[in-house]
Design a protein around this nucleic acid. Sequence first.
DNA 1: GCGATCAGGT
DNA 2: CACACCTGATCGC
Length: 708
Amino acid sequence: MSRFGGRVREYPAVSIDRFDRDNLRARAYFLSHCHKDHMKGLRAPALKRRLEGSLKVKLYCSPVTKELLLTSWKYKFWEHHIVALEVETPTQISLVDETSGEKEDIEVTLLPAGHCPGSVMFLFEGENGTVLYTGDFRLAKGEAARMELLHSGTRVKDIQSVYLDTTFCDPKFYHIPSREECLKGILELVRSWTSLTRYHVVWLNCKAAYGYEYLFINLSEELGIKVHVNKLDMFRNMPEILYHVTTDRRTQIHACRHPRDDDCFRGNRLPCGMTCQNGTPLHIISIKPSTMWFGERIKKTNVIVRTGESTYRACFSFHSSYSEIKDFLSYICPVNVYPNVLPVGGTEDKVMEILKPLCRSYRRNLEPRYKPLGTLKRVHKRDLSDTDEDDLFDSEFTSARPKIPKQQREESKPSSTGKSENAEGNIESTESHKATTTYTSPNVDFMDCEESNDDDDDDDEEEESEINILQVLSPVPGATSTSSFSGVTSDQQETNADVPRWDAFFKCNKLEESSENEDAFPSSADAGGSQSLFSDSDGVSDSTHISSQNSSQSTHISEQGSQGWDSQMDTVLITSQERNALDFSCFSKGGSRAVVSVLQETGSQPDSSRLKPVGPTTSCADDVACDLKSKDCGKDGEAGTAGVQDVLVEVSNSSRTPDLELRRDSQSSSDFEIPLTPDAEVPQPDKLRCLYKKLAAGESILREKKVS
DNA sequence: GCGATCAGGT
DNA sequence: CACACCTGATCGC
């Protein structure tokens, strides 16, 4: 929760995301997004009175935020005081003190924040320097680098202060699976269930808050099933959303809510009251979006966890992970940083300890660290501007950082993050991560990687010491940031290079996803891919892995064969768990553009596509589905449920408890991966030779690892 | 009666 | 473990 007081020290005449107390005197207001904890005081009588007595006081926000805000009658009184600013359009604003007539000009730019519909960051530029207020944000690694307006020319702007969303600024949140990975996990789960019969429905147990819309949109587009919601009038002017939600309860995906919706669900009733259709009882599963995080060294992305007979948790995060925050901040490299949020167990000091090293005002104090990786050192370009001599990190970090698209950033970025992260961050985070492990792992909902951490030292080392190399040589998992680095699929990256704008955001999302998906979907754009994944898992795996494998496959395997180390992990998982279930040829690569179109077509496909039998390995599910259709309803329920459990979640070995599953996963991902991997991919001699050559050149440890 | 705050819940 | 929100109790105006 934001504990930001509303004002930045550089421009105290404006108030952002807080509207009470001192903020009542602000000359201008800014709202980053429509979540209640950022709207404190926004409808208070005191502020209302202030508005009534003023012609000048305005509230600035994105068009979408304006729309959402004014949908609620409680905020209608703002109507004539809101100014919607287009995203990524610098705008001059005069801050006038109405009593003294004093005036100050400021330029503000809204940057997409990826947190919820309409969410933005505010970039203020004026006499007192450039200030970035992030609001709440979720940006993948490298996204800051793709924001044109954070740059001036080819360099990052000189930013004085960043007011930062530090919700997950704690090493224990090191990695949160990317939006795309999470989405795919959910998609496959929903697909596998809803394709059994039309009476198999999914309830998305979402909080009452904006931010799930892109999930609805993507599910609807992919599956051709609209999402039932309680209300949709706030989207009346947002066709991209509106089209995918419905108030018609006769749909297979629900995100409706009810004050006691958990009770409803327990009574096999949807929050909207539906229990059956055409006299046939519904078979309902619930999926609760939850934040799941992973330790720094394990990128295993088990994005779905089964928590009960028919309940699941799915990974979903509105906020950037620890590593994403650090990536973001180290790219911006402001003079100062101020946390907007205290992470739960954390203190301001602890957060600052993490953030300080990424800021200029503190970096000058750091000693250059010995780095065994020579290439990473050559960053020390002479900077052009503001830093002094001995400030060697400063310079490179701040000014010598080329803007990302197309250019090669390996010198600035990997080293900048690498140095501080490797030096301090990782070590410290390792420690605290361990500390948190004990309480995390017993918990059903969150995965922990400790066990494998402890065991597989080589992996640890690998990732820990070579995180820079990893970034240079291969795509970072779940991030679109690959575009930041030279030598990696720059082509396809350019398709991803768009900065996420809100209106484009959800679409973009999809595009990005598809380009990442290219491996996953081309030949199995219909239910086939997932179905075959789910079925036949001869008792080894659950849907969780399936989804994540699926996503990791698509996410990490790139044309260049430069898949990251983590995809390896996932590959291993698949191999060990579902070898015979999977036909990986269906993941073979395709051009990203092709995939985009496939996905788009899929989106518009009628229901029949998802009810169709989908291939040999799906026979189980299909049989179930067919059986269900032909049998009487009473039996249907049983058969359907049982069948799908087999298909989806057959966890076998009685290890139905999620945390047991987790443990086993960790094991399979660590202890046993080496033996298993060759099964999936036997290194070809010439490939090996090539790899060795690269190794000799000092650059390809990662690949070597990957292949081994 | 309203709002602010807190506790408790999802 | 979280978030963002809701409800209900309590207090103050």
